[in-house]
Structures are given as C-alpha cells and as structure tokens.
Amino acid sequence: MLIRTEIGVDAAGIDSLLRRCFATSAEAELVQQLREDGLLTLGVVATDDEGQVMGYAAFSPVTLGGEDLNWVGLAPLAVDESVRRQGWGKQMLFEGLDTLSDFSYNAVVVLGDPAWFGRYGFEPAARYQLHCRWPGTEATFQVRKIADDPFAGQGGLVEYAAPFNRTA
C-alpha cells in the first residue's frame, strides 16, 4: 500500500472506487464537481502494489457563519471492500491531517460514525456549539482540531462547499 496526495492521473481510479463503495453515484459526482470547481483542498489516495486506487479521502473548504477560518470538511472517505479493516482509512486520515497541518489548516469537520472517528480525536461538534445544515446529524457531525484551540469563541453553522448542497 502507498498513501499519497492524489494527482491528475488518479481521477478515473478515484471515480471507479467511489462508484464501487457507495450505493449511488452521488459521492463520485460530488468529488468530480469539487475538483472542477477548484474546491478540492486535498485528496489522499491509497494504492495497491499495482497502483490501483483502493482508498480515497477528500478534504474541501468549509466556512463558519460565512467566514473562512481555514477549516476543511472530510468527505467522502472510502476504502475498497477487499482491503477494509486493515488500517487504510486510518492511514489516509492521518496523512491528510499531517498535510493539512503543514499548510496551516486549523480544523476538520466530518459527518460520520462517532465510534470510528472518535478513536482518532474527533469530538461531537455540538460540544463547541457547532452544527451543520442537515437535520438529525447531531450525533454524527464531529470536529477535530489541527491547530491549538480553533474552536475557542466559535459557534454556529458550519457550511460545506456549494456542491454538497446538490447531494443533500
């Protein structure tokens, strides 16, 4: 397995992976739209020994109350079924967090399984008076700091990039 930042030639493999991993094409279309709109802050791929994309994590900008605080949203995160439960998702997550830290990003938000993300430092966003636009996501909307104290004095609506509104 090789974990690295995505490059242009990975786009077809990423698209194929996302179409295999999710019940609809919404995530594949979302990533394509983020890429086309220049809203893909970071893409991390995991490839097998033959170079096939077997995992992917996308990070895109989010705002808080319309303000850019150098936060990103993680979505989607996908690992091919044949290599799940082998640590690929965790390794892509930490590669992404390291890269984002190097570029002075402050925090990551995610809608995902609290049991899985909680193991890697994510906390309920509601703890910091943060929420997203989708009802019923209080338990799954989570945050993780990259920089020191990015949530101090913050609170309100975290908004994902416009392409996310097309899939909801």
Rank of each mutant, 00 (worst) to 15 (best):
S104Q: 15
E123Q: 15
W71I: 13
L111E: 03
E81N: 13
V79N: 06
P114I: 05
S104I: 11
P76G: 08
D68N: 08
F59S: 04
P76D: 04
M92Y: 15
A58L: 02
A78G: 06
G73W: 00
G66F: 02
L74F: 03
E67K: 07
G87I: 10
L64E: 11
G118M: 12
G65V: 01
N70M: 14
A78N: 01
R85P: 00
L77P: 14
W88H: 14
D113T: 09
W116L: 14
G73K: 01
G87H: 04
L93C: 10
G87S: 08
Q91H: 15
S82L: 07
D113N: 15
P114K: 04
W88K: 12
F103I: 10
G96Y: 11
W71T: 09
V109G: 01
V72D: 05
L64P: 12
W88N: 06
L111S: 08
Q91L: 14
N106C: 07
G96Q: 15
Y56L: 10
W71S: 14
E95N: 13
Q91W: 11
A57Y: 06
S60W: 05
P61G: 03
E67C: 03
G55K: 07
A115G: 01
P114D: 02
G118W: 13
G121A: 11
L100E: 10
R119D: 09
G96T: 13
P114A: 07
V62S: 08
L111F: 11
Y120D: 01
M92L: 13
G112Y: 06
N106Y: 01
G73A: 09
N70Q: 15
G87N: 09
Y56K: 03
A57S: 04
D113G: 10
E67R: 11
F117G: 09
D98T: 11
F122W: 07
K90R: 15
F103W: 14
R119P: 06
W116G: 04
E123F: 10
G96L: 13
L77F: 10
M92Q: 14
E95R: 14
E123V: 12
W88R: 12
A107H: 10
P61Y: 08
T63F: 01
G121T: 08
W116P: 07
D68R: 08
P76K: 08
R119C: 06
A57C: 07
V79L: 03
P76F: 10
S104W: 13
L93M: 12
R85Q: 05
V83E: 05
G66R: 10
L74T: 05
F94I: 11
Q91P: 08
E95I: 00
V79P: 04
Q86A: 09
P61S: 06
R85T: 03
G73T: 00
P114M: 06
D102F: 03
R84E: 13
P61N: 07
E67M: 01
F117S: 05
E123C: 08
A115S: 13
F117P: 09
G89L: 04
G118R: 11
